[in-house]
Design a protein around this nucleic acid. Structure first.
Length: 370
DNA sequence: CACGCGTGGCC
DNA sequence: TGGCCAAGCGT
């Protein structure tokens, strides 16, 4: 396994050159973002550490999520909960509601749990040791390293998708992902600067986000073009190598729009674990590989009643499968005795609904019978 | 450790 | 248009 890369790590001098040119590039091209503190620039100037709460909040939101998507959510959270104590005091439902549409809802539950951990275990102040950060809910190796570097100014190497790509190209790592992960992390660690660790970490990510991107390598603008081995070969887009992905399957299901005579609609909280965990939604059948016929759809209904199938289907694409959902209106024949809540349409905006549920609501508006 | 977990934008 | 991608984590 020790064929680490096609080319060996850089010498001490080369590393110093790489660090200097990247930091200079960062100062020159600095992008302002709501959670950032500007680089002081200059000689040995370390950027003053940012508020750990803001760094943490932004990093959790940015997990697998684009900057443009995160910005409005980040502003809303920070304005509503300015510090970790405020967030810890909030009811979980409020946090989930504020998170709706952002996806990966386990992050929101872990965020809330983490806020309470900070208050109960650390007196409301973020710990400044990587191991203590790692013990917090929702904080993994990447986020712990990011907080260490950006908020506490400590030498640490957060390795996100950008850093993986930049590093794989710089060294021409021949091993394919995800197997190459450890190897790439080790190589990335050899680059990390002692000075301005927070700026260096963000510079690596910015480089991957704006210059050394997945689909384009704008090597002309890259501060590392003189040392990059993939650029020297003229094949930067060949890295990082990846193993082929499986094709995304389609799964089928039925969603039940339970409507009472007064017009209220039935919602229930989804189980904490699993798809859209902890969010509100209308009842759904189990998801199957095959289309679900009318008989099975009636059999899966949560209560007895008159069923009307709406025309069309709701299509929603998740990370690991494509969902094709039939929607039927169900007028319960008997009183409700299943756990959940009846919600007036004018109050839909009060409950935490994932995007799939909003699509279903829209589908009923368009195709539903009044 | 491979997999489950959202959503929106891009070509 | 379908596949790929985006500042990963928990199990």
């Amino acid at each position: 396994m020790e064929k680490a890369s096609e080319t060996p790590p850089f010498s001490r001098d080369a590393r110093a050159r790489l660090q200097g040119s990247l930091l200079a590039w960062y100062d020159r091209t600095y992008r302002e973002l709501p959670w950032r503190t500007p680089p002081r620039g200059g000689e040995n100037g370390d950027t003053p550490g940012a508020d750990p709460y803001r760094v943490w909040l932004s990093e959790i939101m940015l997990q697998q999520t684009t900057v443009a998507t995160v910005i409005p959510y980040y502003r809303a959270f920070l304005s509503r909960w300015p510090d970790v104590a405020a967030l810890a005091r909030a009811p979980l439902d409020d946090v989930l509601h504020a998170w709706q549409g952002l996806g990966y809802y386990a992050r929101a539950r872990n965020l809330h749990r983490c806020a309470r951990q900070i208050v109960s275990q650390w007196g409301g102040r973020f710990p400044s040791r990587e191991a203590d950060l790692r013990a917090l809910s929702g904080v993994g190796p990447y986020t712990a390293a990011a907080i260490m570097a950006i908020a506490f100014g400590q030498k640490a190497t957060p390795v996100d998708g950008n850093v993986v790509r930049v590093t794989a190209r710089l060294f021409c790592v021949s091993t394919a992902l995800p197997h190459a992960r450890a190897e790439i992390e080790a190589l990335a660690g050899t680059l990390t600067a002692d000075r301005r660790p927070g700026d260096f970490a963000q510079a690596m990510m910015d480089l991957g986000a704006t210059v050394c991107t997945a689909k384009k390598a704008l090597c002309v603008h890259c501060p590392w073009k003189g040392d990059c081995r993939a650029h020297a070969r003229g094949t930067p887009l060949d890295y990082p190598r990846k193993t082929a992905k499986k094709k995304k399957p389609t799964r089928h299901g039925v969603a039940y729009w339970l409507r009472r005579p007064d017009g209220d609609v039935f919602f229930q909280r989804r189980e904490e674990k699993g798809l859209l965990g902890g969010m509100m939604g209308i009842p759904m059948s189990p998801l199957e590989e095959q289309k679900i016929g009318p008989n099975a759809a009636a059999r899966f209904a949560p209560v007895a009643g008159d069923i009307t199938f709406l025309s069309g289907v709701v299509i929603h694409v998740f990370t690991h499968f494509r969902l094709e959902l039939m929607v039927c209106v169900l007028v319960p024949r008997v009183g409700d005795d299943i756990p959940g809540m009846w919600v007036r349409e004018s109050h839909f905006s009060d409950i935490a609904l994932p995007t799939l549920m909003k699509k279903i609501i829209s589908h009923v508006r368009v195709n539903g019978l009044q």
